[in-house]
């Protein structure tokens, strides 16, 4: 198995958030879904070595889940938080993604990787703009570019579609997909939109209450039962023209809901 997660536990101030999350996957594109407070961000942070945790994570046989793996550029992690609205330019911010390679002056190689990412993500028009002048969506794209120029083998993204319009979301997925095909990148993303998750991912991991509820292909995972059990919503699942599941949600099943 490429990615193995075994018995991850973690918490904030004595309150346990993840109660032994275990799964493994050979998929290239993995989506993590689940309701609010299911522990999705915590799980990604633990895998990225950004949070103290119990249990083990390994990727291609190497133990990860430590800051060292991030420092060695094996693992890339894009946090959910926005960057501070600083006055550095978009180019400078993306260049920071090459931090572990730069001694004093960035090399031509580093500069080319940054140029390329800027081009791929269509950021050329704003490359010389300052971060504090950007819209939320533009800032998100800069964050994504920064994570990509690290050229990690495993890319972990915490809600990368935040603030992005439909076209930008699809573009972002496309760039990641091309990278996984060409360079063997494994990407794991937290997504809220189940339809986007089905479209993007080879495999979906459903988290609920700090545990894995289910794991599998989009078609197996996205079911009426799952939506009822995990999300507490009344919904239909139909097939789109590519045979992918598409969720049509009608209402909440909980007290106060319409159904």
């Amino acid at each position: 198995m490429t990615l193995k997660v075994e018995g991850i536990t973690c918490g904030y101030g004595g309150k346990e958030v993840l109660h032994g999350v275990t799964f493994s996957s050979d998929a290239k594109l993995i989506a993590v879904v689940g309701p609010n407070a299911a522990g999705k961000s915590s799980l990604i942070k633990c895998i990225a070595g950004q949070m103290h945790h119990g249990g083990h994570v390994s990727f291609k046989g190497t133990e990860i889940g430590r800051q060292e793996a991030v420092s060695a550029d094996m693992v890339g992690y894009m946090p959910q938080q926005h960057m501070n609205p600083v006055s550095m330019t978009v180019y400078e911010a993306i260049l920071l993604g090459r931090l572990n390679h730069i001694r004093w002056s960035p090399s031509q190689h580093d500069r080319r990787i940054v140029d390329h990412a800027i081009h791929e993500l269509s950021l050329d028009p704003i490359a010389d703009k300052r971060i504090n002048e950007l819209s939320g969506g533009q800032m998100q794209m800069v964050s994504i570019a920064q994570a990509l120029v690290k050229e990690p083998e495993l890319l972990l993204m915490d809600e990368p579609t935040n603030n992005l319009d439909l076209q930008k979301q699809l573009e972002m997925f496309e760039v990641v997909r091309i990278l996984s095909e060409q360079r063997g990148l494994v990407a794991m993303m937290i997504l809220h939109d189940l339809n986007m998750a089905s479209r993007f991912a080879d495999e979906i991991v459903v988290l609920s209450g700090g545990e894995v509820y289910a794991q599998g292909k989009p078609g197996e995972i996205t079911t009426q039962k799952m939506l009822r059990d995990v999300y507490h919503v009344e919904a239909d699942v139909v097939e789109d023209r590519d045979g992918l599941p598409h969720v049509i949600a009608y209402g909440s099943l909980d007290e106060g809901g319409r159904t």
Partner: peptide, 20 residues
Amino acid sequence: SWRYTALKLGDAHAASLGVN
């Protein structure tokens, strides 16, 4: 200096870039 520059983006981003 590069680590400090990264830190300007915020703790989470700096850590994600490999800064302790």
